[in-house]
Amino acid sequence: MSQILTTAVTAQAPVVKSSPKTASPWRPAAILLALAAWAVASIWLAQNPHNQDLTGILAAPGAGHWLGTDHLGRDVLARLGEAVRVSLGLAVGSASLAVCVGAALGLLAAWWGGWVDRACNLLADAIAAIPGLLWVLLIGALAPGQKWALYSGLVLTAWVEFFRFIRPTARGLLMSDQVQATRMLGFDSLYVLRWHIWPPLSGSLLKLWSYAVANAVLALAALGFINVGIRPPSAELGQMMTEALPYYGEAPWLLAAPVLLLAVTVLVLQSLSVAIARRFES
């Protein structure tokens, strides 16, 4: 009874309850996993995405080619599989490395302060001063068509966001009474990191990570669309759109497939981060 009373008294403002269905991160996560599983499985199950068949170009979806063929007679379903595989692989990899770099530098800056802090901030500001896509283009130009160049470009622009989130939060936590109390009891920095810094940050990091993956997928498609990203004959969503553009009159499904797939992928990633945010805020 008194427990109920206290909760009722402290609940000054009416609490807006989100229905548990919309708050569950499992549904978008499941769709994302299914997408990734299909992309990987298409290595063995689908036809060779690079096989050209000039006698059967721009075929409509049918029994032989479920989603039809493109202007070189290649199987669209197989190409979509390869495109998602490449996109998600690069995006997940770069976002994950960006989290590590951003979190490490953010913690370093918060912990040491002084010139380390200033140097890290300067670096972050310098990178944020130039649009992200431009960075990716610049670095991509050093080694045209190389995946590692795209990868480093994406990481370089993505870590700043994590750094800017981690640094002030960690700094506030490090100066708090709870950390002071733990230090006075004789615990070391590792313990402080594990039990004071990590728990409040982890949820937000996961959310930001999911956003960063979505951003990277979009960036890769944008680069592919202007023909500077992944090189042919490797399939890539943006590049497939460019290739399909001249034929949208005869074969609209050719353009629709990568567009829809890109939209679904980004939507799923964003709803995943929204769901994660809800879960950790509640």
Binding site: S176, D177, Q178, A181, W195, H196, P199, P200
Partner: peptide, 10 residues
């Protein structure tokens, strides 16, 4: 505030 003296998630 004794709450400020404990790791909140432990």
């Amino acid at each position: 505030d004794p709450l400020a003296a404990f790791p909140p998630q432990r």
